[in-house]
Write a protein that binds this DNA or RNA. Structure first.
Lengths: 223, 223
DNA sequence: CCGCATCCTCATGGATACTG
DNA sequence: CAGTATCCATGAGGATGCGG
């Protein structure tokens, strides 16, 4: 029963952090923003969270009304999913992802990677850009398949090729993150060898490259 | 030298939390989003953070390039301030403040309060609303003075009455938060006695009340 | 197997005293 | 005033156990 240590401040940010400020909490939310998942899947995705902590955080988030247990009828099992209120965390989480562009641009280093996380990154960035025309491209990265689809209703990023887009290319994780973060142009990514296949559709998606201000500090080097 | 424990995940959110995910870090950012401040002021505003933790977090945020020490020429002292990159945290922080609306609507309880925090809350919400016309109102709350000013360039919220607005009224903290969060209408606030003075300008500012979905959980009661 | 609960160790947070 | 130094409480991390 690890009591959520409260800031005890009558302030929106403090109250929000009382709910999702504990370690691992927002990363659990991240996974559920990508898709509902069962306990074992979360344990696998988070890769490093102790099982008791995961159980603690899940119970806490459930008690706070951020997540709920749902019955996955297709798989016939219980999955964790965000409540309607919890879905509202997409905005601040995507804003943090955008803010972190210079941090991911520093390179992967020895860090773990899961292609799922690119779904959120691409939504956070590509969701902003106005579409000149409908487009659907597939990106094969790290053994996974991402589909970026854009039509009149908006932009969506999903896992898997279903249906298979006309244009499919492969790229490495760092290149996709850098493209999404807007710290590299498609042209530079291609010449650097980070992309294989016809990148013309990709160039259309990541046309407007918004370069974020680089962090001035020196403590950002990835060892 | 408390090493920032890293998630070691090649993901924007994880990298961001490696920088600002430690306890108290985002609350320090909150204070500096409102105004630069010196060490003692931060220690006072945060009201509860141990001095060694405050020093640790300040050093960590400085090393990461989020904040920097600046010379306040007017006061002739050193203050902490956000770097340009650190200013970029305004978006995710304000998004968290908006998300927390149901949490602050639960009431103040025994929590500490500082009128400074209303500056951020009002900016987070009022900044969204399109202005029908220029307006400037003063709100006296908890011994402090807030000025909400709106012109062609946008909406700003500042501490102090300078220059003094034509319309000045007083309100209690909970009412202002609830108005900003959009969980109560100006009409209801007035009839409940939370506002003193002519609230007509106030009604113009908080015209469009966006009611957030309430949290479904039961763990949100403020003792 | 999956979904947790228990146990133990140690890093981190919190309160107070102290110093340049 | 702006932090350091110290000491204790607490939560994180890892291994393992256990019931369904």
């Amino acid at each position: 029963m690890p009591a959520a240590r409260s800031y005890s401040q009558f302030c929106g940010l403090a109250r929000a952090l009382d709910v999702v400020g504990d370690r691992w909490s927002l990363l659990i939310v991240r996974e559920l923003l990508i898709s509902p998942a069962r306990y074992g899947e979360l344990y696998q995705f988070l890769a490093g969270a102790a099982t008791n902590l995961l159980a603690d955080r899940l119970r806490g988030l459930e008690n706070s009304g951020v997540i709920e247990r749902r019955l996955d009828v297709e798989r016939g099992c219980v999955v964790y999913a965000l409540t309607e209120w919890g879905e509202g965390l997409r905005e601040p989480v995507e804003a943090l992802v955008r803010w972190s562009a210079p941090l991911v641009a520093a390179g992967r280093g020895q860090d773990a990677f899961n292609a799922r996380w690119l779904v959120l990154a691409l939504q956070a960035i590509a969701g902003d850009r106005t579409s000149p025309r409908p487009v659907a491209i597939g990106i094969a990265v790290d053994g996974a398949e991402l589909t970026l689809r854009r039509d009149k209703t908006g932009t969506s990023v999903t896992l898997g090729f279903a249906p298979r887009p006309a244009t499919v290319l492969s790229a490495d994780p760092e290149t996709v993150f850098s493209l999404a973060a807007g710290v590299i142009s498609v042209r530079d990514a291609v010449t650097a060898g980070g992309v294989e296949g016809d990148p013309r559709e990709l160039a259309a998606v990541f046309a407007s490259t918004a370069t974020p201000p680089p962090p001035s500090g020196s403590g950002l080097a990835i060892p």
